[in-house]
Nucleic acid binder design. Structure first.
Lengths: 242, 242
DNA sequence: AAGTGGTCTAGACCACGTA
DNA sequence: ACGTGGTCTAGACCACTTG
């Protein structure tokens, strides 16, 4: 039964919040099935249509996935989702491929002021800082610096285990129970530093596309800061606006 | 009455196509009201719920706009829509403002190979090429080259009338009956040429963010190619991914 | 065969805007 | 007061998946 009941907020909205909360709290975890629409309707004392409307909203937000004849599931972070929603680099013919990646360094440090503020951490909190190069067809193209709060990812990269998968978001979900749900990206053009130039095999001063991404969980907590510097000689950042 | 009737395609989808077609054909033009849900339901011989579902889809695609108590309207190209859906440059604090713009040149030329192919024109078709500088708070920040097929915009900029509004999409709609519905953008980092440097008051070689945008109508016909070169010293390109 | 989501209907009541 | 969209219900039938 819904206790909130009357007034301004429509039932289906309340149910949407309720379902979202269950997922945030991990009562229902990624990949698992949720109760059927009819079952939820009975539990909540509303009609199936109302539950349906709530679920439809969450499906549009990529929180839930419907499978006809089977049921409704909490969305999963398979590589496809990463590719489709969070990866915007394509080659010059418009084809998306996830590059492979090699970790250069993975260190524990105190958060910089910028890291602390974007990840909403207290000053000097410990963070994990991963640096890696990403290659398309053996050509090094992107340099990434990934910052994570140590508290949430404490085991990551410990003991020299730098053998990270290149779809990190899958790892976050499976290993640390953290599902990335959305991301904010800021793009700028910058000049290749000496280090960029060496690692990407370019001239110093070559223009690079810098992508500063803050990745958020369902409840909008920032959990990853990722700064990518990308050569756009043979690739570009693709965005479609409606 | 719907003649397509039975089979695989759901009714609400057919209705969605039907409404889309009416708008594409300009039977209903931007800003005007469409018949009420009940009225459409009766005309089409379906229930209100089915019409409603079709309309909901189009509202989500920004094709229609609902106003409670008033009716459903074909979406309009007010400056807000441009700002919200098609303009991604913000200042370093994340604030969006549309810059003012000054036209440098507006000329009729034969389409380059690249222009012809992206605008789907026959080789050597005539195009209008507008070049302009855009300023934020008196600081020149973006250089734009806009290419339009002459056939659709024949009167544009004729007689030295370069006094174009800075929200061009509103002009396209009102003056030429062309509504921009979506856009594809490709972003790269490039070096400022001598000309860029002069116009933007920068050093030659400064990295610039190049945005190559193809703007499409509702029926996905490309009607504008716009190449912007943007200084990202005090601004960035903002994108949110879900 | 049973259970799930997907479509569609018919009708009630509410909130809002206009006249 | 009336017409509009917004919410909600109850129930029918279909399409798909699983046992």
């Amino acid at each position: 039964m819904l206790t909130i009941g009357n007034g301004a907020v429509p039932l289906y909205m309340q149910i949407k919040e309720l379902l979202t909360a269950k997922i945030s709290r991990k009562e229902w975890s990624p990949g698992s099935i949720i109760p059927s629409e009819l079952q939820l309707a009975q539990e909540l004392g509303v009609s199936q249509g109302t539950v349906r409307k709530a679920i439809t909203g969450l499906v549009e937000n990529n929180v839930l996935t419907r499978k006809q004849g089977r049921g409704t599931f909490v969305s999963n972070h398979d590589p496809d989702r990463t590719l489709f929603h969070f990866f915007h680099i394509t080659d010059n013919r418009g084809h998306k491929v996830i590059p492979d990646s090699r970790v250069l360094r993975c260190r524990r440090k105190q958060a910089s002021r910028m890291e602390a503020s974007t990840l909403q951490l207290a000053a000097k909190t410990n963070v994990i800082r991963i640096e890696r190069v990403r290659k398309f067809l053996a050509t090094p193209t992107m340099l990434e610096t990934i910052t994570l709060p140590e508290s949430r990812f404490s085991s990551l990269g410990k003991g020299g285990n730098y053998d990270l998968p290149n779809t990190l978001y899958e790892l976050y979900e499976k290993q640390y129970g953290i599902t990335i749900h959305s991301a904010d990206e800021k793009l700028r053009a910058v000049s290749a530093t000496k280090q960029d130039a060496t690692l990407l095999n370019l001239e110093v001063g070559t223009p690079l596309l810098e992508i500063e991404r803050v990745a958020l969980t369902l409840d909008k907590t920032p959990v990853e800061l990722r700064i990518s510097r990308c050569s756009t000689k043979n690739h570009y950042y693709q965005n479609t606006c409606f």
